[in-house]
């Protein structure tokens, strides 16, 4: 196979691999993080995921 064709194909394959790998890694990392919802009620009490906590 011509070297130029080889370089061309290697470039495309490597970029696709980097893009897919990076996107998959970020999605997996996001899945492993549970998202907590912090909220301050009107009376100043801090709640995490709906449960009251002492924010001191």
């Amino acid at each position: 196979m011509d070297y130029q064709v080889l370089i061309f194909l290697l470039t495309i394959v490597s970029v696709v691999l980097v893009a897919v790998g990076s996107t998959t890694y970020r999605k997996l990392k996001a899945l492993n993080h549970k998202h907590h919802i912090f909220r301050y009620e009107d009376d100043g009490v801090c709640c995490v995921d709906g449960d009251e906590i002492d924010d001191e």
Binding site: V18, A19, S22, R26
Partner: peptide, 11 residues
């Protein structure tokens, strides 16, 4: 391809 690669690398 170049745009996506740049984004991935910066991330």
């Amino acid at each position: 391809m170049g745009f996506w690669l740049k984004r991935c690398l910066i991330h």
